[in-house]
Design a protein around this nucleic acid. Structure first.
Lengths: 132, 132
DNA sequence: CAGCTATTTAGAACCATTATAAACTGCAAA
DNA sequence: TTTGCAGTTTATAATGGTTCTAAATAGCTG
């Protein structure tokens, strides 16, 4: 299994559940956005055994902490995650809450001129809200 | 009262509660960021009568819909609002969750090259996450 | 002033997320 | 292999921000 090493290298035990969640999250043609509920549904569809909701939350947070997932800063009642961990941005369709990737190359270079004392920039994320 | 007209022009009845919330939100030297809980506390400190939490939620949402407040897209368990409704951006201090304004002039012009069919850009918001 | 609709209110309901604590499991050491 | 233990999983309860409800109240227009 190709995810065993990945997990072990991060100090995460390659449990059956984590490996199955890896399959759902990372063994795909394309990256995608999801909420925990959407992921839960995807997991139900793809695997036979049940993974408890608590484990899904735990795993997603563990993966996010290790940098295998990113949280998308959007105001919604649910938290959105992204399996695309490259530097990039998002369109946010206000009508239906849909998110669309916006590659770095589709946004001019962003130069933050203001500095904050003693702080480093960890990420720069652009959210482009869309309306009709 | 200077807020009566503002409210009436928006189709909102200038009730005692709304006018008092206007005072707290807009009669200030500087704009500021807040969560509903923080606003509730501020209101308690500044006025004698009680305003119910439901009214605070209703009013904040009404003001946001009318464009007198902006929601700040940040992942937090609470929703952040901003009384600064000009086009601008934010630093987000990951350590303590603090938000700092980042004026448009402190960010180079942002040119979104990708177009989405049939959609208009409503806003472009940059979130700069800070770490130590 | 009358009557109508918008608004306020306390409290209940909702629901995403987190906490709990008991059962289970991967794994290293013997 | 077996043992022991820390790391995980699990069902369920708890939490807490937000929204809903329905009754009381308050602007506003005629």
């Amino acid at each position: 299994m190709k995810y065993i090493e990945k997990l072990r290298n991060s100090g995460l035990r390659p449990t059956k559940q984590r490996l199955q969640i890896c399959e759902v999250l990372f063994n795909t043609e394309r990256t995608f956005h999801f909420t925990i509920n959407e992921l839960e549904q995807k997991i139900k569809d793809k695997i036979d055994n049940k993974i408890s909701l608590a484990t899904i939350y735990n795993t997603v947070h563990a993966f996010e902490k290790k940098g295998y997932l990113k949280q998308i800063p959007v105001n919604s009642n649910q938290t959105y995650f992204d399996t695309n961990i490259t530097d990039h941005h998002h369109f946010y369709n206000l009508k239906d809450g849909n998110l669309i990737d916006l590659e770095n190359s589709d946004v001019g270079p962003i130069n933050i001129k203001k500095k904050i004392n003693g702080k480093k920039i960890k990420s720069i994320e652009v959210l482009v809200k869309l309306e009709d």
